[in-house]
Design a protein around this nucleic acid. Structure first.
Lengths: 152, 152
DNA sequence: TTGAATTAGTGGCATATGCCACTAATTGTG
DNA sequence: CACAATTAGTGGCATATGCCACTAATTCAA
């Protein structure tokens, strides 16, 4: 047996979440790697794909990520020709995003690999457990931590 | 109501995990911010603190993070004088890590804030739910995704 | 209509993480 | 003992994310 300090038992919710994210992230990354995409990129392409030429702000909101972070993350995908953007004709502040034809092909390729990772995860962790986990994570994502402003 | 595309329902375990991590990370970061540390840094200082002058490799293993990533993450903390390293006298390949006196003070300060975040999270999410969540996350962190090498 | 306030993105800077190639120190072995 | 194999870190490069200041486009109000 290895000397893994403590058997697990992380007390901090945030630390436990990040730790698990590193672990699972590496697993999905490894499986999706043959496509040349990181799991995050595959996820982002997918998000763009299921949206109707979504605006950047809409994507950022869905993914609960900073708008500028989304912009940065998009860059390599644009550089590699998988994604393109265009100004919304009705509101030129808004920039919409869509997959290029190559992006669609690449997404298909990556999704096949993603299915493998997803399937294997559910085999190892258990399908119900995975489902409950996702539900719990979605709940967290939906929580409102704001202190009630003393109801004026 | 806002136009939040789908009500949640993330299908990818990894994507759901990252999304929740962004959300919770921002919350902990915001609460811990007055200390000048990010929640990840507070967590790292804590990990170092509870260890007995842990070697970098040991910390990386505990946190399930890449050794080089740990090295990078440590740099700002060393630069700011919260952490120092020294070669293990018995094996000079090994670099051990410990808090400086200022690091200890800073950790105390950050832990007070962390408690607030932790408490508030558990108030909002529910104590049992939080506990079950951490357990589930620790389980994920402990999973073994390797395909059995055909037992030679 | 015009100027203030708001909204959507960008670019720069900083941390978080991972991979790879490379170096130093140890260990194992003939 | 000398050399191959292994182990622990480092440094460079790339993506992931967030904050802030700033610009452009819109909306709102006097």
């Amino acid at each position: 047996m290895s000397k893994d300090s403590l058997p697990g038992l992380t007390l901090c919710n945030n630390a436990a979440l990040r730790r698990a994210a590193r672990k699972l992230g590496k697993f999905y990354d490894d499986v999706v790697e043959p496509s040349g995409l990181k799991a995050t990129q595959q996820g982002l392409l997918y998000q763009i794909h299921i949206g109707d030429e979504p605006a950047m702000g809409a994507i950022a909101t869905s993914l609960i990520m900073d708008l500028s972070a989304l912009g940065h993350t998009l860059k390599p995908l644009i550089r590699d020709g998988y994604v393109e953007t265009f100004a919304d004709p009705d509101d030129r502040r808004v920039k919409r995003v869509r997959l290029t034809p190559q992006g669609l092909v690449k997404l298909d390729e990556a999704m096949k690999l993603w299915h493998i990772a997803q399937q294997r995860f559910e085999d190892v962790a258990g399908k119900d457990k995975a489902e409950r986990l996702r539900a719990a994570l979605d709940e967290i994502a939906a929580l409102d931590f704001d202190l009630p402003p003393a109801t004026p």
